[in-house]
Nucleic acid binder design. Structure first.
Lengths: 198, 198
DNA sequence: CTATCGTATACTGTTAACGAAAGTCCGCCT
DNA sequence: AGGCGGACTTTCGTTAACAGTATACGATAG
């Protein structure tokens, strides 16, 4: 594992806790409290708060700190899913044919992580791995052209990730997406993604 | 004008310069250089770099600083416009009927700023005011539910804002959008927005 | 002459302490 | 009861310092 910056680690950690629902919507998060909890200074915490605000998890108000946002409602969710699917489809159409072997390896690694997460039955891990898998495909196809907007759309959706008894089906769907991607089959990939995001 | 934080001022300043095209694509921006230029410490500069990276203007790499991203290519632009229009339309359908008088005032203020910007013929000002006007409508209709993703989509588009001799047409189009909004006429608003984003 | 390695340097990442500004809350006074 | 003032909390911003990492440059070996 490559060493990431403290800011990235802290951001990922807080994001996981937000996805896990460990904080209530509307709750205020304090810099000093977080800094103490993670044993770091307030600098990286500020960075993380700023980034998570940009990602849509937190609401930022000047001089008032950040508060935890609520998950989007069902009507909004279906609209958001529609948009993210359009982005993923655009990427696949544009760049699937020419993705590199390295990118394919990244996608396969993401699939492996997803398999492990599904086996562990930890909803936050599954949600994160699910998103990471789709993001790996998006980046492989169209670079970081749309990944920012895509993340904005998907981020808070993770807070509403469906809790299941068994995530075997989730893994199977993504395995079939990967198979289609591996064969550079645009039609099959689009079909598999549509099935997954239905 | 209320006093904003230094971070916000610096972010807005750098963003304007990016929209104006004062930096070349791929150029590396240095924290210390920016800090000296604005007469502030590295802290707010780091915050601004982080935020502008999130917004899509800059590309961030750990330990390597940030580089200026290029404007999206024409094919990507038309796709992005399609997505942003969908978001604006969704917002209008959802919330136009129930926008407050205060929100209407914000939109009108944004229109006034746009008028001034069009009169000044400063492309960066027009681009910013144009975006602010649409954002005011979006926020009035659907709060900050989609504004993050919308900003991600629109931000870099500003770097490719069309330079015109005369922005009178731009103002006229937005004035007719505002008129439709003022009357809470969903159909007319959608039509006017479609005309503007064609 | 080229390639590789090591070092020197520049820049980012992080910490700590401090002061300033803004917001919040509580008690006091009218 | 309601408005006002002040103490307290928290964020915002600065400074200085140091650690870690990437890049550039030069020396050395082939």
């Amino acid at each position: 594992m490559i060493t990431r910056t403290i800011r990235e680690q802290v951001t990922a950690k807080i994001r996981d806790q937000l996805v896990s629902g460990e904080f209530d919507g509307g709750q205020v998060l304090r810099e000093t409290e977080m800094a103490n909890r993670f044993g770091v200074s307030r600098g990286p915490i500020r960075d993380a708060f700023l980034q998570l605000s940009q990602e849509g998890f937190l609401a930022y108000q000047a001089n008032c700190g950040v508060t935890v946002r609520h998950a989007p409602n069902p009507e909004h969710r279906s609209f958001i899913v529609s948009l993210r699917r359009q982005i993923e489809e655009f990427g696949v159409r544009e760049g699937l044919k020419s993705i590199s072997e390295e990118s394919l390896g990244n996608i396969e690694a993401a699939l492996t992580s997803l398999r492990d997460a599904c086996a562990s039955n930890e909803v936050a891990d599954v949600a994160r791995a699910d998103m990471a898998f789709h993001e790996a495909i998006l980046v492989a196809c169209s670079g970081d052209e749309f990944v920012g907007a895509w993340r904005q759309l998907c981020s808070r959706m993770q807070m509403a990730y469906t809790r299941l008894e068994d995530y075997g089906e989730v893994y199977a769907e993504h395995a079939s997406i990967f198979e289609a991607v591996r064969q550079r089959d645009v039609g099959a990939t689009l079909h598999a993604i549509t099935q997954n995001l239905r």
